[in-house]
Simulated scan of single mutants.
Amino acid sequence: MTEPIVARAPTRIDFAGGTLDIPPLYLFHQPAITINVAIDLVAEVAVTRRPGRAIRLFASDQGRQATWPSREQITWKRQPFLEMLARLIQSLAPDGGLDVRTDCQAPAGAGTGGSSALAVATAAALAAVADLQVKRSTLIEYAKSIETQAIRVPTGYQDYYAAVYGGASSIEFGLTGIRRTVIAEKAFLTQLERHLLLLYLGKPRFSGANNWDLFKRHIGGDHRTLALFDALQENALAMQRAFQSQDLHSIARILNRDWETRRRALPTMSSPAIDQLIRSLRRAGAIGARVCGAGGGGCLALIIEPEARATLIALAKAAGAKSLPSVVNTRGLVVHRGKENFQVST
């Protein structure tokens, strides 16, 4: 066997503007932007050539595996949870035998874009093995399209941009395309890290269900849903200004406002237990809080007073939540074989 090609892509914390990234909804709320920060809970994929034509997939984060006699014989009917990975291998793998090993540090259903980061890393690793030169924009479209096929509901763009580029991003969805802007440099991101706390609530959920509900209501012209999207747009623009001003207290305030906007509009995004935990954490030193992604469980992101970290983690643990690393990832997608780095073109 040859040396494996390894790709790593970060997940993210969404600060504002999530759901505005789903096409074509963003066309109706211009300017539409999403603000997120990539974190070092990474998805990692290693692809190794092997003799013969058989392809073996080891999804260690799911505790699942599959073997197919060849790329042409790949199927996911008996293992639907592996459909996204199987589709990526089927469409991108070169001829010949492969071992594909995947892992994602973000818990399943965390709301931090783990499956999208995994799609990006898998596509990048397979492209490198096949000696394909793939632009970042093409990689984003490919990963998004395959994941959409697998989950069968519309997906937004923001997770793929965080996975490919890393850092703190303002992603603008305009009439002629998508534009990403860096909205915070390393010095401020280091300061932000000191005030970030990420908690896993231990309640995995399918985020696509909430987003699909909003999508249908929006396309159907529901007035309350249209008003919600207008409020999400306003929150995202305010969050962009807060990041540009490097104002942590404004970031926390808008994080709270965005969470309340979402929670009122879609009650399934929260629960009495989540509401109670957020109230307790705010009394103990959290100044901003919202559930990541489309809600319903998963991860809770907080802006905190640094000296309260230990107390907040203890409170969360007593409530059954687990703290996760929230180091900001500024590298984005990295692909290498041994000491050889593969550059993903712009």
Rank of each mutant, 00 (worst) to 15 (best):
Q90W: 00
R71C: 05
R49K: 13
L88A: 10
R71K: 11
A46N: 02
V42E: 05
R49G: 07
A54V: 05
Q62C: 10
L92D: 00
R53Y: 11
I55T: 01
R56A: 13
R53F: 07
V47S: 04
F58L: 14
P51R: 11
P80R: 00
P51N: 14
D61W: 09
D61L: 02
E44H: 03
G52Q: 10
P51Q: 13
F81R: 12
G63P: 03
Q65S: 15
L85Y: 06
S60M: 13
Q90D: 09
S70A: 15
Q73T: 14
G63D: 15
Q73N: 14
A43R: 05
Q90G: 08
L92H: 01
L88Y: 00
R49N: 02
A66R: 03
A93Q: 04
S60R: 15
L57V: 10
T48C: 11
T75D: 14
F58M: 13
L88S: 05
A46T: 07
R71Y: 03
S91W: 00
R78L: 14
A46I: 02
R78F: 10
A59E: 07
R87N: 02
A54C: 12
V42M: 03
R64C: 13
L82S: 04
L88Q: 02
R56G: 01
E83P: 02
V45K: 03
W68S: 06
L82F: 09
L85H: 07
A59S: 12
P69E: 15
M84P: 05
T67D: 15
R50S: 07
I89E: 01
Q73D: 15
T48H: 00
I89H: 01
V47P: 01
T48D: 00
A59K: 06
E83R: 10
R56E: 12
G52M: 08
A59L: 08
D61K: 04
S91R: 08
R50P: 01
A43Q: 01
V47E: 02
V45D: 04
K77L: 13
Q73V: 07
V47L: 05
A93K: 04
L85D: 08
